[in-house]
Design a protein around this nucleic acid. Structure first.
Length: 801
DNA sequence: CCGATT
DNA sequence: AACGGCTAATCGG
């Protein structure tokens, strides 16, 4: 049998691995009862150790837990040949008791691979890649595997994708699952299916609305539709955290089973570190919010709020309908136009989720194939976890023992070890014209590969420190004889990506082939860029402070070298951060600049390469990490300035941006001053919309833990006094109002404003002026007469004149 | 005013 | 369950 490996899990009741194979039209589940689950033990005398372990009998429930078999095998550890005892288990359940007993046996050095779940070990052992093909002999009647499954290349058939969203009755703000019903469930499929289920009798006769008897019938109908339409992938937005837990509670209350599984099994919610993830057997539940979160951490999406509306606007540049959640109850009770709008809004949520899901699924399907883990898992992993599971699979392939993740003390120790990072040059402040910007292409990955940086190659015992092996600034050297494991894996990823990019250049955009290949190269980039982070991450299996430290040290070395070379060539370097070089042409031509880059590249080792990022007619540098540039097509890039931050009021950010535009586009400080004048007047006259004055700050801890009570903490306390539950992770929005006392004394949460007036002085002096002055100052407005701190009115007047 | 906290 | 570098506001002694 051949099919695409859609999903995999382990059944405890049957003690089998279940492979979910997606055939051209439907899904077949085959069981493998012959799987092996094992871990490795090392010690000075492996033969004796194997003997000892094989005789273990751990009493349990009237019986015994014992290893199924033990054998001594050849493995490597950080590249060194190491014999190990392979302990095969009778059942995955036996793993922890056996491991704990073995840990305390005499003659045991370390245990490896005990923290790899059985289904993941199965994938790795057989080299299978979810979302790619698998081939195996099966017993047709029993649907059991007769030969070890093999990975084969196979195209993914068209999948049936559906998204859903629920709206809930919420008279107190936060809905209470014991009493507040689900009002509607909307669905949108990639086949064009659109539906909103509701149980409000007098709902308008829209063609996508289906009115049912009651809430219970609605949930049953939802399950029925998912089943009827044979959904492969079920999407939602924040469904791990909200929709599924809520539906589950409601179902329990209504004595219903949420039997969404393809085999009509109930959904299973498992608590993970920060969220609960919900599994549906035979289908894949993808929470698009988790995907968005992932893209935010790698810098692909950068927003103030990650609401569906904001993300949709950012990704597609289009608006979708919005609806105040405070008006759900009113809509339900009043009906009419408001209720109709809620129905439409709910459907638009499902549609937007579907659109976003379809946009990013190709990327995650490719990630599945590269790291060899399921779509369910990879859409919920951090970049570091992706790298780690890829490395676990590669280690297995090479017979390398997989180090365990550190626990307790070791983690604490690693946490203590900090190291120096990147070099950031103090910018030459002010406005510059005719700039060229270069950056090193994937600097850290290139360094790891070029310099063979790996936990096993740093300070090896087989090589002597020498000119060619030494790490700049550090008392480390790198092995010249053995290729490291991590650089080896990374090199392959980078080479594959270059190959793909060459192929892509020859292809037409907007073809299905292009989409697939592009997703593939993107996936490779995402993963490659996360290797360095994992070397320096205390919880990582292949953590090595020395290796991470060597990477940043080489980085500083190359960027400093390039600054010198650029200056020697005649360019003037005005700024540099980590891997980038901002230069003014300084009389040289664009061609000269390119020649400089090419000459430098000829001398750079390995795959380290400087690239042209672009030419910029104008740029303003404020401080390290804060600058703005305009390119030849008039596009403005702003880095680090207030306007990308949520802890500044919209009014300050917008004014700063307008000022930047006036300066960069037109070179006009006068126009900039004009803009500021208009805005400050509007603030003083009380004409500014409250929404433009809200400052958002995230609570990072329980409020009692704060030693210093900042405005957002003070605002959060006020919320709590009014009975609102305040938790870490919440984003508090507040406005500073008129009155006496500190800023914190006057920070009122948006929810409690109740017509109070904002403090115009605060917004002029602490928001708008600081934001614009930072830019104006470096352009020569730094004179004392322009400072606004003294007499407020006079300072402002002088500044404007 | 200035270091600590965020 | 990804790294360090960095700026800036506000608190609070």
């Amino acid at each position: 049998m051949k099919g695409v490996l859609f999903d995999i899990d382990y059944s405890d009741e049957q003690n089998v691995i279940r492979l979910y194979l997606r055939k051209t039209r439907d899904l077949v589940v085959v069981n493998d009862p012959r799987f092996e689950h094992y871990f490795f033990v090392t010690g000075p005398n492996p033969q004796k150790l194997a003997q000892l372990i094989s005789k273990l009998r751990i009493p349990s429930n009237g019986g015994f837990i014992k290893p199924l078999k033990t054998e001594v095998v050849e493995r490597t550890r950080l590249g060194e040949p190491t014999p190990a005892v392979k302990v095969v288990l009778e059942k995955p359940k036996h793993l922890q008791p056996l491991r704990r007993t073995i840990r305390d046996l005499p003659g045991v050095n370390a245990i490896y691979g005990y923290d790899i779940p059985v289904s993941k070990q199965y994938l790795i052992e057989h080299g299978l890649r979810p979302m790619d093909g698998v081939e195996t002999k099966i017993d047709e009647k029993q649907l059991t595997v007769l030969s070890p499954p093999k990975a084969v290349e196979l195209d993914l058939p068209d999948l049936r994708v559906m998204s859903f969203d629920i709206e809930v009755y919420n008279p107190t703000g936060a809905p209470r699952p014991e009493q507040d019903p689900v009002l509607m469930i909307s669905l949108a499929g990639n086949d064009g299916f659109r539906r909103v289920l509701t149980w409000k009798k007098d709902s308008p006769p829209l063609k996508f609305v289906e009115v049912v008897e009651d809430e219970r019938t609605m949930i049953k109908r939802f399950i029925e539709i998912i089943k009827e339409r044979d959904v492969d992938i079920l999407l939602g937005y924040n469904t791990d955290f909200f929709d599924f837990p809520y539906l589950k509670d409601r179902a329990k209350h209504l004595k219903l089973k949420l039997a969404l599984g393809r085999d009509e099994s109930e959904i299973v919610s498992k608590r993970r570190r920060f969220a609960t993830a919900t599994r549906i057997r035979g289908r894949i539940h993808v929470d698009v919010y988790a995907i968005v979160n992932f893209l935010a951490t790698i810098g692909n999406i950068r927003l103030i709020h990650y609401t569906l509306e904001d993300v949709y606007r950012y990704v597609f540049g289009k608006e979708k309908p919005d609806f105040e959640f405070t008006r759900f109850v009113e809509a339900w009770e009043r009906g009419g136009e408001l209720w109709k709008r809620l129905l439409e809004y709910s459907l638009s949520d499902a549609e937007a989720t579907l659109e976003l899901g379809l946009e990013f699924l190709p990327l995650f399907i490719q990630i599945c194939k590269i790291v060899g883990q399921t779509l369910f898992d990879v859409t919920r992993m951090t970049p570091g976890q992706l790298v780690e599971w890829l490395l676990v699979a590669e280690a297995q392939r090479r017979g390398e023992l997989v180090p365990a993740r550190p626990v307790g003390g070791e983690y604490e120790e690693r946490m203590e070890e900090t190291y120096a990072g990147a070099y950031v040059m103090e910018p030459k402040r002010g406005m510059h014209e005719n700039l060229v910007v270069f950056d090193f292409r994937s600097l850290y990955p290139s360094i790891i590969v070029t310099h063979n940086i790996d936990p096993s190659t740093i300070n090896c015992k087989c090589c002597e420190p020498s000119e060619s092996t030494r790490v700049p600034e550090l008392d480390y050297h790198i092995c010249a004889k053995r290729k490291g494991f991590i650089p080896g894996v990374l090199k392959k990823l980078i080479e594959t990506r270059s190959q793909l990019k060459r192929e892509l250049k020859k292809m037409k955009r907007d073809t299905p082939e292009y989409t697939v290949l592009n997703a593939q190269q993107w996936a490779l980039k995402v993963i490659s860029n996360s290797f360095y982070g994992v070397l320096g991450y205390p919880r990582a299996r292949w953590y090595s402070r020395e290796a991470a430290e060597s990477v940043t040290s080489f980085g500083r070395y190359y960027i400093r070298q390039s600054i010198q070379e650029a200056e020697r060539f005649g360019l003037r370097v005005v700024y540099s951060d980590t891997d980038s070089l901002h230069c003014t042409l300084n009389g040289k031509s664009k061609k000269d600049a390119i020649r400089f880059m090419e000459e430098l590249n000829r001398r750079l080792p390995g795959i380290i390469e400087l690239e042209l990022e672009g030419f910029y007619p104008r740029a303003v540098y404020v401080t390290k990490k804060r600058y703005a540039m305009i390119d030849e097509d008039g596009r403005i890039t702003v880095k680090g300035l207030e306007f990308v931050r949520r802890d500044w009021a919209q009014i300050a950010k917008r004014t700063q941006q307008a000022v930047l535009e006036a300066i960069l586009r037109e070179g006009s400080k006068e126009k900039a001053a004009d803009i500021v004048r208009t805005v400050t007047r509007r603030i003083q006259k009380g004409e500014v919309d409250l929404n433009d004055l809200i400052i958002y700050t995230q609570l990072k801890m329980p409020i009692e833990s704060y030693r210093s009570v900042g405005p957002h903490v003070a605002a959060a306390k006020r919320l709590r006094e009014r009975g609102v539950e305040v938790e870490p992770g919440m984003v508090i929005g507040y406005v500073v109002v008129r009155g006496s006392g500190s800023i914190s004394d006057r920070a009122i949460p948006v929810e409690l404003l109740e017509g109070r007036n904002y403090d115009p002085d605060y917004y002029v002096e602490h928001q708008v002026l600081p934001a614009v002055m930072r830019i104006m100052e470096v352009l020569g407005y730094s004179d004392e007469s322009l400072r606004f701190q003294r007499s407020r009115q006079r300072g402002l007047e002088e500044f404007l004149s």
